[in-house]
Simulated assay, not measured.
Amino acid sequence: MTDKDEINSSRKLSVEEQERLIKTLKARFEKNMNRHKDLKWDMVQEKLEADPEKIWSLSEMERTGGEPDVVGYDKSTNEYIFYDCSAESPKGRRSICYDREAMDSRKEHKPENNALDMASDMGIEILTEEQYRELQESGEYDTKTSSWVKTPEAIRKLGGAIFCDRRYDTVFVYHNGAESYYGARGFRGVLRL
């Protein structure tokens, strides 16, 4: 068995795990119709069942506290779009700096991980600022926490990274050194299915 085969086999859920996750996702979908007004669950489930690796990624989003839900459908690519919709930044993804370069630059008190590597390992992408703002249109998220968002290359080259939160009924975008990390900052992801 090659390393790639080993990774692929570890990225599959058992039938029971798959059924449990689909049941959870369906209940969340039905409870939050404001996020996906004109979409039907049966079509989402059909695509889920056809893509075990994407189901695994959604299970990772769920396992780390993201509460993924469908937030849209891209007609041009025939893909459903899932975002982490937990009220606060996912608990299992906090206390991390922005990327590997930032993590490696710390001389001491290094965090255990970083947002970009975690997202990649989960098979998802970190939200952009635009996606983050779009999410905030369906509710109020990160009123006590904050979330790293995809940082423009020009900012990152200068050592910075950006994050967002919601305070005073307003979405704010801030900056920090990419190597910084806090117990109340994680990241939110997007998965296209």
Rank of each mutant, 00 (worst) to 15 (best):
N34I: 14
G92S: 10
C164M: 09
L193M: 15
Y98P: 00
R167L: 12
A119Y: 00
G189T: 05
V15F: 07
L158M: 15
F172T: 12
Y141E: 01
R192A: 12
G183K: 11
D99G: 02
A161C: 08
N78D: 13
S76I: 09
M61V: 06
R106E: 07
F163D: 00
N78A: 14
A178K: 01
I124A: 03
E140P: 01
V15C: 09
E53A: 14
L39K: 07
F82W: 03
G177W: 06
L39W: 06
G72T: 01
D69T: 06
Y80P: 00
Y181L: 06
T128S: 15
E130N: 08
R192Q: 11
R20A: 13
P152N: 08
L13D: 02
I7P: 01
S14L: 03
R167A: 12
G160L: 07
I124F: 05
H109E: 14
G92C: 11
A50F: 09
R156Q: 04
H175E: 14
D117I: 07
C97H: 02
G139K: 08
D142M: 02
M122T: 02
E46R: 13
E53S: 15
Y141R: 03
L127C: 07
E60Y: 01
R94P: 01
D3K: 11
T128R: 07
G177T: 07
K31F: 09
N32G: 09
A119G: 06
Q131A: 06
R20G: 02
R167E: 10
D117N: 13
E19T: 10
A50E: 15
Y98Q: 00
E125R: 12
I55H: 02
G177Y: 05
P111K: 03
E53G: 11
K107P: 03
E49H: 08
E129F: 06
E112Q: 13
A184K: 04
A119L: 04
T143Y: 06
Q136R: 03
M103I: 06
F187Y: 15
V70R: 00
R28H: 13
E108F: 12
F172C: 08
A87F: 12
I7F: 04
D38F: 04
R192G: 09
E79Q: 15
N78H: 10
D38A: 08
A87K: 15
E101N: 13
P68K: 00
Y132I: 03
S10D: 11
K37T: 14
N113A: 15
R11D: 05
K47Y: 07
D51G: 07
A154D: 14
S57T: 06
R188C: 00
E137W: 04
T145A: 02
Y168I: 10
Q18G: 04
